[in-house]
Write a protein that binds this DNA or RNA. Structure first.
Length: 1017
DNA sequence: CTTTGAACGGTTTTT
DNA sequence: CCGTTCAAAG
């Protein structure tokens, strides 16, 4: 189902991409003028909207077109810097605050990203900061990208790409890549790779199955994910990093869990703690054996490193004098600790967030980091409140406030709406989600037809991904384009992951998890039973499966130690794997393998050996091509290897196509593009091949680069921060990625450090100087060897997780989860499925305390959702929630938070009941106690014939008892009738809905959807 | 070992 | 309802 959804989303996305591509050239002048508008700004935040609408591509186009003109000089030396001119008073107070620790509490729609960006510009222009000294941390890659886009517009491309803007994970990845050797007992070398969730789950499942060979797959998986959750939260609470040895960790975790159990006075948990700690130890050991870290390790090991290693910490202190964190309310314990370690002594620290938008508690985020801990740890911090709301109508603002009000975990200040009241909020009840979807789709279709909003300004927000399907179908039937934002990303597709697993294995021949994934993936006769036997055999010998099959790497370690280019050259075109010696396998009888499996296994070993050579010697995309070719993967796909069910038939070509895309991405890949410095769109490597120096592109000073820095230099003169000096001379300041990103600051660094950090402060590039302490890094080679490129590719893909779907320029109505909607805004927002149990999503029987906290977070989530809307907001709930089939549903109450919405008096309640009289009664009298006020307030143009026409639609569809609804309407509030006017629009929508709903098939099968989509293409 | 058909089970949010 | 998993046959 996911695949179906995502597939559809993707193809539309592709369509959009093409469109953008074609339009890009034609739009140049147009885009340019938009930028002008953006930098002029229209009072409040009109400019920010325009800027946000710029795509990365456009931005770079513009930068290219404008050339040196975008360099800061012109703008920055003006009396009032342009980047501050558009800010409101309160925004200015934050953005232009003096250096120091600053905590900005910013409500939704307050322009917080804008302020953050302005702050950065301010640091550079007024405080004389060098971009290199600025560290901007976000929670998503998308946010980082957007920030860089804006900065590129404000400061010029060259400057913008020099500051570090990325996620916590991306930052930590780079820190560890450079310094993991400086962490004792880390248990990994610097060629470690990152395991994403799929990988760790797989790892755990393997372990569980090994422990309990007779378990069913389902139970194994369930146990594995349970363990994963437990382990992750243990790591998140940061109690393991002091003893990163497997055994030490185990003991540490055990103690922690026991303490926890004792605190809760729960003896049962104490027992469990022992078991869990044991698993934890195995998990850690397995990670180490594969030279891998998980997401939590990235953070935790970085914290351990910085906490334990004075020299390294000092180095980053010198490097990052200005630290900015967005969405600070979403930090977890480890991330908070990291911020402290980076900033604590005396860095300039600027954090922005809104405790009420803390919606990631389930993954360890703790808003008290912002509301309490930060206040305590940084008592001198200046506090700025951004209370003006530039986004939403006053009604929406007021309603949102009344929704969030019951949460009293911190002292919030109010919001000041900056827009007039606007339309009433509509609260709509329908019979079931089928109807709900139809209604939403019909209204959207009509709205678009009337041209009331551009399609990308209309959004549908769901609590869960699964909910989107019905709406998709209905939109689809009406030919409304939509984009499913955040659908399953490209990189997690089975076929992509398969190929990546091959790459992963081929890189070092030591990744057992990747091995177990693909050892039989184009079926080659090595099935489960053989695999189990092999694993047992390996375990008997105290080996991992990889080392049994491939040896311990043939020149020392599998990783970077052996990646000198020269080594590879010999075997270069050989292909046949003669470059490496495979260890002899034990006799097949000893292994208990059937003859067939044994020969297959031998062939597989040869194959992997060959691929290993290919990965070391060929450019990445060629190596991947090699993998695809030699494994017969394409044929496997075409033969339906991944076609698990009939409904997935027809996907084969698409899967193959995705493999091609993967190859394309690999060809275009330049290290750092995804997770950090440079966006993939910008520098298009001509050759794309191995020798391409695109990744080092910054090093030979381009003219504009030099110009930009000269301009900076100018602005530096006469600032109060006189001790900052930059030599402008020629060494590679931006040697991109690996170590260069951090090492390259030698100018400022060595000056202040006085040789403390880099033992050999003198020589060569900054990167070398820095790495001198930590041991020779293969990563400073001017052109990255293929093997390392491949490794970086793997890691970045893991960290990237694909937020580029549905980019700003893709046309179509936006469909997404509430979580994914954070930070976005739309003119018109629909929120279907607001039923209690679904909206406050409730499951199981959680403890009372937990439940309260959980509901509080759900409330925040709802609050976030409401505040996405600028003008019009439609909240829907259904009389019954139909889980699967159309009519297997159960009665369901509306979302409990709706009470506040309706009581707030800004909503028009449209209702159609068709159930039993009892149900009607319950709903009408019980649900919204004080709601009748709503209609009376329906001021101005409000209207919306929604109620009336909608009743018509009910009659039209022939399914409802008209008496029921009329009676209901009449007796209850005048809401439906009272609110009647402007939007006869919705009448037409509903009408078309009714007619179309009578079509031959109300439900489109997935195949049908696909077919239609194909037709439209 | 792979393929087939039938039964079962399931639904948060993501770096 | 759909997709995954299980068990038996080829």
């Amino acid at each position: 189902m996911h695949s179906l959804i995502a597939r559809n989303g993707r193809s539309l996305h592709k369509l959009g991409q093409n469109l953008v591509r074609h339009l890009a050239a034609a739009n140049r002048a147009h885009a340019f003028s938009r930028v002008a508008a953006a930098s002029e700004g229209h009072g409040g935040n009109g400019g920010s909207v325009a800027a946000a609408a710029l795509t990365r591509r456009e931005a770079s186009t513009v930068a290219a077109a404008v050339g040196g003109a975008t360099s800061p000089s012109a703008a920055s030396l003006a009396a009032k810097p342009a980047h501050l001119r558009q800010l409101s008073e309160e925004q200015l107070k934050a953005a232009a605050a003096p250096l120091g620790t600053i905590r900005v509490v910013a409500g939704p729609g307050s322009g917080k990203t804008r302020v953050l960006t302005a702050r950065i510009a301010q640091l550079i222009h007024t405080h004389g900061a060098h971009p290199w000294q600025i560290l901007a941390i976000t929670f998503t890659n998308k946010a980082a990208d957007e920030m860089k886009e804006r900065l590129a517009i404000m400061l010029g491309e060259e400057v913008a790409k020099k500051l570090f803007a990325g996620t916590f994970h991306g930052l930590c990845y780079r820190i560890l890549k450079s310094h993991i050797r400086d962490l004792e007992h880390a248990g990994r070398d610097s060629s470690f790779t990152v395991y994403d969730q799929d990988m760790t789950l797989r790892l755990l499942a393997n372990e569980v199955k090994r422990q309990n060979p007779d378990w069913k797959a389902k139970d194994v998986n369930q146990e594995a994910s349970r363990l994963q959750g437990a382990i992750s939260s243990a790591k998140n609470s940061m109690l393991t990093w002091h003893a990163p040895t497997p055994l030490g960790v185990e003991r540490c975790v055990l103690e922690h869990l026991q303490r926890q159990a004792a605190a809760e006075d729960n003896p049962l948990k104490a027992v469990e703690a022992g078991v869990l700690a044991e698993w934890f130890g195995m998990y850690e050991a397995a990670l180490r054996a594969n030279n891998a870290v998980d997401f939590d390790d990235l953070l935790g090991l970085s914290v351990a490193l910085l906490a334990s290693n004075e020299a390294v910490r000092q180095r980053y202190h010198r490097r990052f004098r200005h630290v900015l964190v967005d969405e600070f309310q979403d930090t977890n314990a480890t991330q908070y600790e990291l911020v402290k370690l980076l900033a604590m002594p005396r860095a300039d620290l600027f954090v922005v967030g809104d405790p009420d938008q803390s919606i990631y508690g389930w993954r360890g985020a703790d808003m008290t980091n912002m509301t309490e801990a930060f206040v305590k740890d940084f008592p001198e911090a200046q506090v700025c409140d951004l209370q003006d709301n530039y986004r939403s109508s006053a009604r929406i603002v007021a309603t949102a406030q009344s929704v969030i009000a019951p949460n009293d975990e911190w002292q919030r200040k109010g919001m000041n709406p900056m827009h007039p009241a606007g339309d009433l909020i509509q609260v709509i009840e329908l019979d079931d989600s089928q109807q709900e979807a139809r209604y939403v789709a019909a209204e959207i279709a009509a709205t678009l037809q009337r041209g009331e909003h551009p399609e990308e300004q209309v959004a549908v927000l769901f609590r869960t991904h699964a909910q989107s399907r019905l709406v998709e179908q209905e939109l689809f039937r009406r030919g409304v384009r939509y984009v499913l934002v955040g659908g399953l990303p490209f990189w997690r597709r089975a076929e992509v992951q398969d190929v990546m697993a091959y790459l992963r294995l081929a890189v070092g021949l030591r990744d057992n998890i990747a091995l177990s994934r693909i050892i039989n993936t184009p079926r080659r006769g090595i099935g489960d039973s053989s695999l189990i036997k092999l694993q047992a055999a390996a375990a008997e010998r105290g080996l991992t499966l990889c080392s049994l099959l491939f040896g311990d790497g043939f020149s020392g370690e599998g990783g970077q130690g052996s990646d000198e280019g020269s080594d590879g050259r010999e075997g270069a075109e050989g292909g046949g794997g003669r470059g490496m010696q495979l260890p002899p396998l034990p006799d097949r009888k000893e292994l208990g393998l059937p003859a067939k499996a044994a020969t297959a296994l031998e062939a597989f070993r040869q194959l992997m050996a060959e691929l290993h050579v290919a990965v070391r010697t060929q450019p990445l995309h060629k190596a991947l091509k090699h993998i695809v070719d030699r494994t017969g993967y394409e044929k496997y796909l075409l033969d339906g290897g991944l076609t698990t069910s009939a409904s997935k038939q027809g996907d084969e070509a698409e899967r193959v196509d995705r493999i091609w895309q993967l190859l394309g991405a690999a060809a275009d890949y330049s290290p750092g593009a995804m997770s950090g410095a440079v966006s993939l769109d910008e520098d298009y490597p001509e050759g794309g091949g191995s020798g391409s120096t695109d990744n080092v592109g910054g090093s030979p000073d381009s003219d504009s680069d030099r110009e930009a820095r000269l301009a900076l230099r100018v602005t530096l003169i006469g600032t109060d921060d006189g001790d900052v000096e930059f030599s402008i001379g020629g060494s590679s300041e931006y040697s991109d990625f690996s170590d260069g990103d951090f090492g390259g600051t030698k100018d400022a660094e060595t000056e202040r450090a006085g040789g403390e950090g880099g033992a050999a402060g003198a020589g060569g590039t900054g990167a070398e100087a820095e790495e001198g302490g930590g041991g020779r890094g293969a990563d400073t080679l001017p052109s990255m060897p293929p093997l390392q490129r491949a490794q970086n590719f793997l890691d970045e893909v893991a960290l990237y997780s694909g937020a580029d779907e549905g980019g700003a320029a893709t046309p179509g109505v936006r469909l997404m989860t509430m979580h994914a909607a954070k930070g976005l805004e739309f003119e018109l927002v629909y929120i279907p499925g607001c039923n209690d149990g679904l909206m406050p999503l409730l499951r199981g029987e959680p403890g009372a305390v937990d439940l309260v906290k959980h509901v509080a977070e759900e409330r925040r989530l709802f609050y976030v959702s409401l505040t996405r809307a600028k003008q019009r907001l439609r909240i829907l709930h259904t009389a019954v929630t139909s889980l699967y089939g159309a009519h297997s549903g159960r009665e369901s109450d509306p979302c409990r938070f709706l009470v506040e919405v309706v009581e707030g008096g800004h909503a028009a309640v449209l209702q159609r009941m068709q159930g039993s009289p009892e149900a009607r009664d319950r709903s009408s009298s019980g649900r919204y106690p004080a709601s009748s006020s709503s209609s009376s307030k329906s001021g101005s143009r409000s209207g919306s014939s929604g109620g009336g026409s909608w009743q018509r639609s009910a009659a039209g569809s022939g399914s409802s008892s008209s008496s029921g609804s009329t009676k209901n309407a009449g007796r209850r509030r005048p809401a439906p009738s009272g609110s009647s006017s402007g939007n006869s629009s919705s009448g037409s929508a509903a009408g078309s809905d009714a007619s179309s709903s009578r079509g031959p098939s109300t439900q489109l099968s997935s195949a049908e959807m696909r077919h239609r989509r194909g037709g439209r293409r």
